[in-house]
Write a protein that binds this DNA or RNA. Structure first.
Lengths: 343, 343
DNA sequence: GGTGCCAATTTGAACGATCAAACCGGCGAT
DNA sequence: ATCGCCGGTTTGATCGTTCAAATTGGCACC
């Protein structure tokens, strides 16, 4: 169990001496037990336990030319969604399960240079990129320099097959939201999200479009866009609601839009909101609304596992697949209190 | 500028050969330039740039017996507050400014064992502990084993002077909230927070108590407690509001309580809430309420800087200070829309 | 001209692990 | 008896850096 004491290192040589074997045998006991005679292994293991030996990570890293760390740039906490937080949690767990650690680094300064430095110094073996934008310059830049990375978010506008990525099918998620609202009896289901040009924004809007067509609804122009903040979203939703044949429900590109839409709908005399709205991301804020809001939830645990899996394949030298992984989100349905849809 | 190319290592020996000097001289150019003749230094620097040399981190770590990483256990994202997220961001920046990186590790398994392992293997030099509880077992356990750590949150119930910590004065923050409400004309200011026994909960309640006394208000028993979730908080606030002389405003232990209190107060015919409430933590959710809620904001950037500063002192061998740092939060005031206080 | 000293630079030896190759005794096959 | 082989173990070298001590050349001083 080790005698506790100070945290300074017991080396493999000390263990070897204590067990009366060579360094290499100790190493074998830990890394390739099948090469060691059982009784020798037992003796070595006892010495390891008694001395509390733990292999020095820096020495391993130096020899093996790997840090078993993956780097992630910290992004500023912004907005109501704790998406990054949850992804980070999932990534930490997934990486840990694969023997890797997550090393965070700051946003200060040039991200490209900082990232390259982490790789070149061997501080991390690879990078995880989040918030991948249309034509994201990081992808070709890292790729050209041989910097291993995997994206959360499919690369758009630069050839699918050239990078490794995992992503969530936003179109499918919004389509589920529409399906749900239609099943609840709504016929005029609007969409509120980002203006065109934003990659995942376009994707989510396309999901609404597809579902609306599939259900044969005459809601083709019930679409609004705004900046992703509550005030702007409220104003945009209000414009749609002011039309002669207003929507009775909204599917939204994010929870922030959804909060805006619900505010625009106002509340009835009983205090319940007038407008049924489904959000996207399932942020903590939407559960503590009253009544709580349904929202599309991204399978972040699975995304993180896939990202780590791809990373390990990539580091293992697998040049072949270079393919992305698309995952399906779930709609988290929360009971509605408010007016039922009427036609 | 480096020729880019693959990410594999250029070593210090290659630079030395290119510049026609010894390894050590290259090292000196980087670490102790005053020992090197200017023209030699220039030549070496040119070689460094041309080859794109970057020192190997593992080799440095091995030689210097330090990883320049600090470990932080990822805590599960819970509740409406993005406190951890923001602290993590601040810590990453503060650590980066001091030449350290933040290494995250998962919560799976035994935290004590996992943490000790990170230290013993030399993966991290020190730990940052958050969510320090009353009589937290981690503190004596790490301390006994010589594991360097600094807490965000003062250790309670185990001798102030024995550990390094930085914390935010919650009592002061709540007192500010009360002062603000009193200045706005309220005379019956209630408190809603955690039941007694929780360290920072008691602290924050004490701040309310002190302020209420100082203002000579007869609000001594206007205090309620519940679990920290919106439903429970709403119920608890409702009980206070149902009394013969109900409070006209609330100071709360956290934003979650505050959301509950505002919900319990209900809204008037104009849609604005009836009850003026001040929260704690300034989470993103409170800004997007309507009207946005005032809240006490913890100075997390400063906390992180102090934590890193203490850590470096600690690692530098400073045994003397062993003192905590107490920081003052700010009240973020947001314009109130709703009934003015009446007596 | 020898001595001492200083600045500038080099050499040798770690740091702690692991890889590759060598070694060793014993046993079965030839 | 010799050879080859094999499981088990050890030896030597190496990863890339930095610390500590040694070395060099130059210059002033007595």
């Amino acid at each position: 169990m080790g005698r506790g004491g100070d945290a300074t290192g017991v080396t493999i040589s000390e263990v070897a001496a204590a067990a009366g074997v060579s360094r290499q045998t100790v190493s074998n006991v830990l890394k390739a037990p099948e090469r060691v005679a059982p009784e020798t292994a037992a003796r070595v293991r006892r010495a390891i336990d008694e001395l509390g030996y733990r292999p020095n990570r820096a020495a391993q890293n130096l020899r093996q030319r790997a840090s078993r760390c993956i780097g992630l740039k910290m992004v500023s906490p912004a907005g109501v969604s704790d998406l990054f937080d949850r992804f980070l949690h999932a990534l930490t767990e997934a990486a840990g399960a694969a023997g890797y650690h997550v090393l965070l680094f700051g946003a200060a300064g040039d991200e490209l240079a900082t990232s390259e430095d982490l790789i070149r110094t061997g501080t991390v073996d690879a990078l995880v990129l989040v918030d991948v934008e249309v034509g994201d310059p990081r992808l070709p830049w890292f790729s050209r320099r041989g910097i291993p990375f995997v994206c959360f978010g499919r690369p758009r506008g630069q050839g699918r097959g050239r990078f490794w990525w995992a992503d969530v099918d936003g179109a499918y998620g919004v389509a589920c939201a529409v399906d749900h609202l239609v099943a609840r009896g709504h016929r005029r289901v609007a969409y509120l999200g980002w203006p065109p040009g934003n990659g995942f924004g376009d994707d989510r809007r396309a999901g609404w479009q597809e579902a609306v067509r599939r259900h044969g609804l005459d809601a083709g122009d019930l679409v609004a866009a705004s900046a992703e903040d509550v005030a702007a979203a409220t104003a945009a939703a209000r414009r749609l609601l002011g039309r002669p044949d207003p929507p009775t429900a909204f599917a939204c590109g994010s929870d922030t839009f959804a909060v805006g839409a619900r505010l625009a709908g106002g509340t009835g005399p009983d205090g319940w909101p007038n407008l049924e709205v489904v959000g996207f991301d399932d942020s903590p804020a939407v559960m503590l609304m009253s009544p709580p809001m349904s929202s599309v939830r991204q399978p972040l645990d699975e995304v993180a596992r896939r990202v780590v899996g791809l990373l390990i394949d990539r580091l293992g030298g697998a040049e072949t697949p270079r393919e992305g992984v698309m995952l399906r989100p779930d709609l988290v349905i929360r009971e509605w209190r408010g007016p039922e849809p009427v036609h």
